[in-house]
Design a protein around this nucleic acid. Sequence first.
DNA 1: CTCTTGACAGCACAAGTGTTTGATAGGTAT
DNA 2: ATACCTATCAAACACTTGTGCTGTCAAGAG
Lengths: 217, 217
Amino acid sequence: MASADKLSQRQADILDYIKDFVRQHGYSPSIRDIQTNLKISSTSVVAYNLKALQEKGRLDREGKISRGIRLAEEAFNLLPMGYQVPLLGTITAGSPLLMPEDTSTQDRDMVDVPADMAESIKKLDDVYALRVRGQSMIDALIDDGDIVLLRYQTTAENGQMVAARLMEDDSVTLKKFYHEGARVRLQPANSTMDPIYTTHDNVQIQGRVVGVIRMLV
Amino acid sequence: MASADKLSQRQADILDYIKDFVRQHGYSPSIRDIQTNLKISSTSVVAYNLKALQEKGRLDREGKISRGIRLAEEAFNLLPMGYQVPLLGTITAGSPLLMPEDTSTQDRDMVDVPADMAESIKKLDDVYALRVRGQSMIDALIDDGDIVLLRYQTTAENGQMVAARLMEDDSVTLKKFYHEGARVRLQPANSTMDPIYTTHDNVQIQGRVVGVIRMLV
DNA sequence: CTCTTGACAGCACAAGTGTTTGATAGGTAT
DNA sequence: ATACCTATCAAACACTTGTGCTGTCAAGAG
């Protein structure tokens, strides 16, 4: 892979400088900025090494454009512009959930998703977030104030943690889901709690938990 | 607040265009880019409105610098440049932790932190991450495979969740910390478990939990 | 009616910047 | 030694791009 190519000391310096510069200023340095700060005698040397860095896949440039340097990693990081999923509401035992159907991505609370999590989740399209209210989910290792990420789906496989709605008493809880012949077992994640057994008819799956984010301040 | 100032149609257009441009290219447009694409008759009009936008706090510029426009929000978003903290290792009951002292930011696993979490944590410098191994922390609502974010500190206030090392048996666990006169109470987050009482001497705090990230795939 | 102000035009200038060309020095293969 | 390649220099060149006037025009203010 190209990015495995080794860099000369000067190239490494330049790359570092660019990173720092972007971090500090929010835009790329000019060739002369690099030249001056790295005490390189000529702009052409910078251009030369910039070209090398480009060929090694460490950065992107668009010819002739001022300050048009883009860090390769950044390019990746910038376009999707922070992975976000809609925060559709709050889940509390007892209150039914909204479906993530309205496509009005506007003026809705959004939750940032860590890049590596977003990567493993892949398609973020049908992922939404819910803020957990109350201690009622504590048995699923989810505390008051946590944010759960759910992928919208109406079916589940054995052992998956899902947001399940019990039609009977119209409550929504997070449980592990198990088919067991004609019946369904909803298993809390804590051994001190007993599972709920019910029928397929009585259960409506509203999404599968794919992540949990907890912020303690 | 300045950002509450209303924008003229043209200013809104310009701001939108800049946003799109940055998203697409990774660097700011030049005044002439804006002029051409928005079919504005003169560069001075763009400069005029840019100045207005600047005074309204919607963007930042550094004079005379090509493509030096920075979006106010973005500026905030860009500088920390992908929030990451080092993943220093694995925490298992029984094994002591490493201190986050080595400054070699190189070749170490990094963990992405959601932007909104990073914001509330503020300084990320002394924050590190640990992967939780084993079910031993389940009582602190933390499961096998979770990633906990800790701020490195050696003291804690009442009620804070900390990584506490018991010198006595050289084990590290996550517990809520309480001063109680001469002794220390380490309280699991689960009511079915009893707290540990010990002396200050026997406890070494290795960091305070500021976040939990769980990825289920 | 005149003066002022906000918003826009046009145009030219002067930096700001990327590129190019030519030359030099060290290393290596022929 | 000759040829060739890489990494550097230096200086000039030419395009890019922000700024600085000088006006124009409509809406208010006096």
